[in-house]
């Protein structure tokens, strides 16, 4: 079986101690393999965002372990974690988080430049990443001259630039209309179909439906999962399909 890109083993995350302690995650185990998009659904306060933060090394687990491409995050220093986020994990947020004074290309190239790559090489990688999301021609455009959907596709390109294969998305279609939002999910889906691994947090069933698996979280516990799809069975006959 293919090795997981992301693996959570019996992860707990508790904020505070004693009677006021909040158990955001309680024994969550999860794997995301190359080519897989996994969605996490659950009501507000169920631990979705905490799950994403510990999975991406933005927050520390209280117990259990997070492994990215087989490497446990608990053994990494702060510097190593920062390098991990620059090189191997990409984040897509609801409000895009693009830097307005940088062009699309510069935004996408930024994590590579921060990692010490020359601007010329970084731009080369950025151009490739923008091509993957269908925006190569907008490489020199500033975010304020782009639509919301285009900005979010730039954010996905930034999340996957270089050889990063793990993308985490927190309600990435939040501010977009349904048609544009669907375009963003389609890009995310295509990236995963090409070998990336994706973890998508959403409260919308319509968006979660783009994932291979949906994990349901409630009160910090995984209460159910859809399992992976079989071959698409004959859902609808007729119309020549």
């Amino acid at each position: 079986m293919t090795e997981s890109i992301l693996r959570l083993v019996d992860v707990t995350r508790t904020h505070g101690t004693g009677e006021t302690a909040v158990h955001a995650l309680r024994g969550v185990s999860l794997e995301v393999r190359p080519g897989e998009l996994v969605a996490v659904m659950g009501p507000s306060g169920s631990g979705k965002s905490t799950l994403l933060n510990v999975a991406g090394g933005l927050d520390k687990v209280t117990s259990g372990e997070v492994l990215i491409e087989g490497e446990p995050l608990s053994t990494m220093s702060a510097l190593q974690l920062a390098a991990l986020r620059r090189r191997r994990v990409g984040f897509v947020f609801q409000d895009f988080n693009l830097i307005p004074s940088l062009t699309a290309g510069e935004n996408v190239a930024l994590p590579l430049e921060l990692d010490g790559l020359s601007p010329r090489k970084a731009r080369h990688f950025a151009s490739d990443a923008l091509d993957l999301v269908g925006l190569r021609e907008l490489i020199d455009r500033f975010p304020d001259k782009m639509s919301g959907g285009q900005q979010q596709r730039v954010a996905i390109a930034r999340a996957l630039v270089g050889d990063r294969r793990l993308v985490m998305a927190d309600e990435p279609t939040g501010a977009l209309d349904s048609h544009t939002g669907e375009g963003v999910l389609r890009v995310l889906r295509e990236r995963c179909d090409s070998g990336a691994a994706g973890l998508l947090v959403t409260h919308e069933a319509r968006h979660a439906a783009w994932a291979d698996r949906v994990v349901f979280l409630r009160d910090g516990v995984v209460v159910d999962t859809t399992g992976s799809p079989d071959e698409i069975h004959d859902l609808l006959a007729g119309a020549g399909h």
């Binding site: 659904m41 069933a205 319509r206 979660a208 439906a209 783009w210 994932a211 291979d212 949906v214 859809t226 399992g227 799809p229 698409i232 069975h233 859902l235």
Partner: peptide, 8 residues
């Protein structure tokens, strides 16, 4: 949701 995924 499994059904919704298949339809999608």
């Amino acid at each position: 949701i499994r059904h919704l995924r298949d339809l999608t």
